[in-house]
């Protein structure tokens, strides 16, 4: 039970700090800490928990003001990201985290494009995605380390193989 509370608290903190502090820093590209927290939590807790955490974090991100997009867009993206992180983090922890951090902005853009949001085309993708992926990649080790510090390593018996990988991360 305290784990659920801790997870919820972590996600809520990330959500609020993202829009109030990080997005308002005077730089043009900032990492998406909600995404990184979901990746870290998914990697620690496994696919089902990852998908659930991702879904509800995304729902929170959709509802969190200021919002003006269709409800569920973030939920869709983060649900899949959380699942992916949980599914493969056991086997290739570093690669999975990196792939999720890099791939999630591309997936979000693709979903927006498919939903017909105005102004999302290939040019936007080229302009936005490389920088977003880069800053996510740079911030990922810090966030994963911090989440590991708060929640502890994966509590299954297979973690013995995964933990050394985490420590290096």
């Amino acid at each position: 039970m305290p784990r659920i509370l801790l997870t919820t608290l972590l996600v809520l903190t990330a959500l609020v700090l993202q829009v109030t502090v990080v997005n308002r820093l005077p730089v043009s590209v900032v990492p998406d800490f909600v995404l990184l927290v979901v990746i870290a939590l998914g990697a620690i807790r496994g696919p089902v928990a990852g998908a659930t955490i991702g879904f509800f974090s995304g729902l929170g991100a959709d509802l969190l003001p200021p919002a003006d997009h269709a409800l569920g867009q973030h939920a869709l993206v983060l649900c899949l990201v959380g699942f992916t992180a949980g599914r493969w983090a056991e086997r290739w922890p570093l690669l999975t985290v990196a792939a999720c951090a890099v791939g999630a902005p591309a997936f979000a853009l693709a979903v927006s494009g498919l939903l017909g949001d105005p102004g999302i085309d290939l040019r936007t993708f080229e302009a936005v995605w490389p920088m977003a992926a880069l800053v996510n990649l740079l911030a990922a080790p810090v966030v994963v380390w911090a989440v590991l510090k708060v929640l502890g390593p994966r509590p299954e018996k297979a973690t013995a193989a995964a933990v050394p990988g985490w420590r290096r991360a």
Binding site: V19, N23, R24, V30, P66, A67, Q73, A108, L109
Partner: peptide, 13 residues
Amino acid sequence: ARRASPGFEDAVE
């Protein structure tokens, strides 16, 4: 607050 995720709206609170 401000939102600035790629693929989402430019909005402030």
